[in-house]
Design a protein around this nucleic acid. Structure first.
Lengths: 198, 198
DNA sequence: GTCTATAAGAGGATAGAC
DNA sequence: GTCTATCCTCTTATAGAC
């Protein structure tokens, strides 16, 4: 989507993403996209079988890119204490969202207000992708419990829920206010969370 | 909109509100609304000159209802200290949102993702209504400064911004998680805010 | 790969009868 | 107030030429 090859397909994806984000799925039409790309509507059907296919190709790519990033954080593969790992994951997640606010806004839009036509598929895909993302944190939670860093009177799932709620609150704040967080802000937030909630 | 007279107009408004909230402006069509109401599309044009007019009639009503409620809080007209008044305003605001989550979700939808066709009008209307709402808190802030309850090294506008940010954060959390707040939760939040931010 | 032409339908809105 | 009938425009999508 931020590909610089500038092929017709790249242009379609770039423009379609912007319009789907700003105008929404229903109000975005093939003609608008094609006019901006500089092709005729029929040409788009060479690349995608339908408007839906184009939409979900973008939707899945945005999620996949985020998951790829989080699953490939090198620091998490080293031999660090699980509480340090959790902080790194939090920091990297917030940083990723800061750098990709419009992509997160896209996901928020279709999570909060899915078009009726897309509703069922989005619900399933959302479940799948959030599960995949949450598993990264869940593994670290379990390691924390194993090593007695977190009190075992609560389950890993329980801790995960608190963590997810915390991360989401700050992501949504960034999306709505369109303000990024500094390193020290991220650090202070984490300290409060770790000491107060856990 | 929650009128029980059950006239044709009430039905139109009730159903249109639900569809505008769930499906969005573009995806909601006159035919859908009329089918649920049980009238023919042409009959709707007896009540509203256009789809836009119907939409803004609902939009303004929701804002007006909220403002009316906040401007008529009897406790704020009594002789109380301004810091107590501010707490009452906060509490009543959160309570109102708890009781009217779907209306707040409607406002959030069209604030975050306005349809292109409505964008300019919504922007103007949003400014007007938020200004009206903020003035209620601003007056109390000024009273706090007059009576030296708040430190005058910051302006009333400055305090207002912090207050609005605080209220909005919790409103959005309620909308997204669809969870209401208990009296003690509201009270504890306020104490933290008053002591920590102000 | 990209085009022209067009099908097939859904949308907002209006005229005028009752 | 509500209806039937209809206008005109916009929409997704396809067929087939180049």
């Amino acid at each position: 989507m931020i590909n610089l090859k500038n092929s017709t397909d790249d242009k379609i994806r770039y423009i379609a993403f912007r319009l789907f984000l700003e105008k929404g799925y229903e109000a975005t039409n093939i003609r608008n996209i094609c006019k901006e790309v500089g092709i005729k509507p029929s040409s788009l059907y060479f690349y995608y079988r339908s408007k839906q296919e184009l939409f979900f190709s973008l939707y899945d790519e945005i999620w996949d890119e985020k998951i790829q990033y989080l699953e490939n954080i090198q620091a998490l593969k080293q031999n660090l204490s699980p509480d340090t790992k959790l902080y790194i994951l939090f920091k990297k997640t917030i940083e990723y969202c800061s750098r990709n606010i419009i992509k997160q806004k896209f996901l928020l839009r279709y999570h909060l207000f899915p078009s009726e036509e897309l509703m069922n598929m989005i619900r399933d895909k959302f479940r799948f992708w959030t599960n995949t993302e949450n598993n990264i944190a869940l593994n670290i939670m379990e390691e924390c419990l194993d090593k007695k860093i977190l009190d075992s009177h609560r389950s890993a799932d329980d801790y995960l829920r608190e963590y997810v709620k915390f991360v989401n609150a700050h992501m949504i704040e960034m999306i709505i206010s369109n303000i990024k967080m500094s390193d020290t802000e991220i650090h202070n937030l984490w300290l409060k969370f770790w000491n107060y909630v856990f």
